[in-house]
């Protein structure tokens, strides 16, 4: 198994609050690594560091053989590590198609090719019926899919998905899970943060548990749910994996 992303001993404090403490992990090619942990555990901060949105106080990030911890977000995105935002950030004044087009232009200059790429990404994410709608008036479920389609249009090697299921109805969530699975089958590795336990257990190849900024445990979903420290910190006594 080749490692595509390596995070080594990363720490970050905000004033007196240690948001992330000496966290390290590997992401393998084609793998989905899920992050769980209570609110405020430091998951999004860790994502922000990996994506270059905030600098780490210490530690290293290596993506596809290159050190990226000092790079700017757009430089990291160009290497092929692209994130979505927990609070979605659509380009409100543009249509859905124009939104996805922005991502598609990253690796192709020709408008005709970029158009085709955008149409394809909208098809995969089920956005085709909304192509010419303004991004402004869309429901949350559609905006979450748009966030994903736009990121996917850049031909990423690794996607960072920050709570793409949060706020969705069970039906919408199930559709989104199918979309994420099909993206993984297309060869994209992923880090995902999710609170919907059944979903993340079913999607992830491995799970990392973050608690008070520290990596509490990392391993296969079946191992994680049996880990007594995880049960105590986050899952609660009665938790069982939901049937697939």
């Amino acid at each position: 198994m080749t490692t595509i992303l390596n995070v080594d001993d990363v720490s970050k404090s905000f004033g007196g609050l240690k948001a992330v403490r000496e966290v390290g992990f590997d992401l393998h090619e084609g793998e989905i690594l899920g992050f769980i942990g209570p609110n405020g555990a430091g998951k999004t901060t860790l994502f922000n560091i990996v994506a270059g949105a905030i600098p780490a106080d210490s530690g290293f990030v290596t993506f596809d053989g290159q050190r990226t911890e000092a790079m700017r977000p757009h430089e990291i995105a160009r290497l092929g590590l692209v994130r979505t935002f927990q609070v979605v950030k659509p380009f409100s004044g543009l249509t859905v198609h124009e939104n996805v087009l922005v991502g598609a232009f990253l690796n192709r200059r020709d408008p005709t090719e970029a158009n085709a790429r955008s149409r394809e990404m909208m098809r995969i994410t089920g956005l085709t019926p909304y192509a010419d709608r303004a991004a402004q008036g869309l429901t949350l479920a559609i905006r979450k899919r748009l966030e994903l389609a736009r990121a996917l249009a850049t031909d990423p090697k690794v996607l960072l998905l920050d709570e793409v299921l949060a706020g969705l109805t069970p039906t919408e969530g199930a559709e989104m899970i199918e979309v994420v699975r099909s993206i993984r089958d297309g060869g994209v590795s992923m880090l995902i943060i999710e609170h919907v336990m059944a979903a993340i257990m079913a999607l992830s190849d491995r799970i990392a548990v973050i608690h008070h900024g520290e990596m509490l445990a990392i391993g296969k979903p079946a191992e994680i749910v049996k880990d007594p420290r995880v049960v105590e910190a986050y899952l609660g006594e009665e938790f069982q994996i939901a049937p697939d």
Binding site: H74, R83, P90, F91, S92, V102, A151
Partner: peptide
Amino acid sequence: SRIGSYMFAVREDEDAAAALGI
């Protein structure tokens, strides 16, 4: 063209634009 698409993206949301490699 690409540069126009990028200008619109920067106008709408700089952080989201940067996250897409702009």
